[in-house]
Design a protein around this nucleic acid. Structure first.
Lengths: 334, 334
DNA sequence: GTGAAAGCGCTAACAC
DNA sequence: GTGTTAGCGCTTTCAC
């Protein structure tokens, strides 16, 4: 079932014009007489002609495609970010190549290489860990790259984030004010810059302000998933924590369930604040109090930023910080 | 910061060989002397040459890229399916363009058009509703297309699914056997063939076998999300149902929470079985009994099937049915 | 307003 | 084992 592919040349011949004219019509170039335009469009319709994006990309050196590197599609935080990106991309008529990096360094590099070889016009990068290999790849790229929900202090890559330090700090402070002396900080790996340089600092700042000593045993590192959160409950209890700030909703749900399964009453005996306010936060019982992040907007704004960069427009602000908030639910008192 | 792009021609000149030889080295063609090969590789390394996939695609008419149409990345069922696809694709050195269709017909069509114009070598399509417009697009495509977790009786498109009818039937039967006379069937829109032609039939079959009359008011249609499930609780209670089979975990979680929030005891006063056994099923309290589906495998097998099709291999079975199961948890008795 | 022709960077015969 | 040479299907000067 080999279909013969119909090309711009076929259209030109049938419409008795040149390829150049067909190209102009297809690309909405104004310099075509209305009459010619209609004639060409009729032939396109009749023949079922569909421009070959690959040839177009080669000739014009623009693919109207952008690459999106995502650590894991099944992670709701990043999936939501991706939706924001996708919607704005569609608005600007860009298509998206969503590439899973598996949170693995080698895969991330490879995926970036692939994207670049595909001649994408720009890249949005999401990832918890940005190391020198990746930075090198960023530097080699000849297209704009923006980070979404991801930080890197070394390269001053354009980025869109919230103020993680303040957000975590405020949550910690709330718990401290509620009288807790031992507040656990349940985080992803501290190898990840976003945890080490931002979130942990927020936690430590809050302790310092409250005059509470920092105790390393209260900082518990996990894997960002439910299972991991469930298992960490034991460590949280061993550390004699009476409250916790958790950086991710799945881990928080795991911790919460493990606690209540063990007979701990929330919020009476244990208080918890999570970080992403994804729909998971309202699915647990008790529902989880949470820092609120404009996750979808993080993606949308990053994509908008990228369109500007691709048009060589100047950026007013290179590292955008979107506002965050807090919502009280049933895993905290009052 | 315009980088000069370095091409195969530059490599050839520097290595004092022809473009053809460089091409052979890059593509791992055996017909190159070891010595030449090493020389060329050294130059590639030194110059930082990266083959242009667009040019390659145009010249060879193969892009080693496949398109994946997904209704919604933030839907966990499809995200998990996508992971299965992605992993197998990586194994066979195919890259993936993940395209969101938003469950909207127009977007689905447009997305298919885009993918085809990008000259993808194959497509995996996921979607709840396959109508004539889409079938027309399938027919026009000159590359293989396989359906994953999606059905269409009209075209006999290759596909990978489970036996939805039996799965829902078994779940319904279990509830009936537990003594329930009024079992609700909570589903997505019956406009979606997969619900109307498969799942609903399973429900009805089970009723027939048990000699229970079909009551339309017990079939309740929702939106596949938590919110929708939560709201449907009222209709479920109005219909005087004492148990429910739900086609999707998010809706099930919503229904479950709405019930328990209203003081209904589960499983004593109400029993529930959900359909996807995603991680959500163990996050709720009580945990949900569920039909089990090999979701990841559905994707993996579909991708494997596509690789065969792309190699023009014969398929032993065109419409693959993977086995399903059932797991008892706390939303059902015993 | 329209056409001719030169590439874009690569692969794939085909020749040697 | 290696080089030569046509294209792949389109955009884009540059003429007219």
């Amino acid at each position: 079932m080999e279909k013969q592919t119909i090309t711009i040349y076929d259209v030109a011949r049938e419409a008795k014009v040149s390829m150049a004219t067909v190209s102009r019509v297809v690309n909405g170039n104004a310099n075509v007489k209305q009459e010619t335009k209609e004639k060409v469009e009729a032939v396109i319709e009749r023949l079922g002609y569909r421009p070959n994006a690959v040839a177009r990309g080669l000739a014009s050196r623009r693919t109207t495609t952008i690459g999106v590197v995502i650590p894991d599609v099944t992670d709701h935080y990043f999936a939501e970010l991706a939706r924001g990106i996708d919607d704005v991309a569609a608005m600007y008529h860009y298509q998206i190549i969503l590439a899973n990096s598996d949170e693995s360094d080698t895969k991330e590099l490879q995926v970036l290489e692939n994207l670049l070889s595909k001649q994408v016009d720009g890249i949005i990068f999401m990832g918890n860990l940005i190391d020198d290999d990746i930075r090198k790849e960023f530097a080699k790229a000849d297209v704009p790259i923006v980070l979404a929900g991801s930080v890197d202090d070394v390269t001053a890559q354009p980025s869109v984030n919230i103020d993680y330090t303040s957000a975590i700090g405020e949550a910690t402070t709330k718990l401290l004010k509620n009288g807790h002396k031992r507040v656990a900080f349940v985080t992803g790996s501290l190898d990840h810059g976003i945890n080490r340089e931002y979130k942990l600092k927020g936690y430590m700042n809050a302790l310092a302000v409250a005059g509470v000593d920092y105790d390393e045993s209260l900082v518990i590192q996990g894997d960002y998933d439910y299972q991991s959160g469930y298992q960490m409950a034991e460590m949280v209890r061993d550390a004699k924590a009476t409250a916790a700030v958790v950086v991710n909703d799945e881990m928080a749900a795991g911790l919460l369930n493990a606690m209540t399964d063990a007979g701990v009453k929330m919020p009476e005996d244990f208080e918890l604040i999570t970080n992403n306010n994804s729909k998971l936060a309202v699915m647990t019982r008790p529902q989880m109090s949470s820092i609120t992040q404009p996750i979808y907007d993080l993606g949308a704004v990053a994509m908008r930023m990228l369109t500007k960069l691709m048009n060589r427009e100047e950026l007013a602000v290179k590292n955008i910080i979107l506002p965050h908030g807090y919502v009280d639910r049933d895993s905290t008192k009052q």
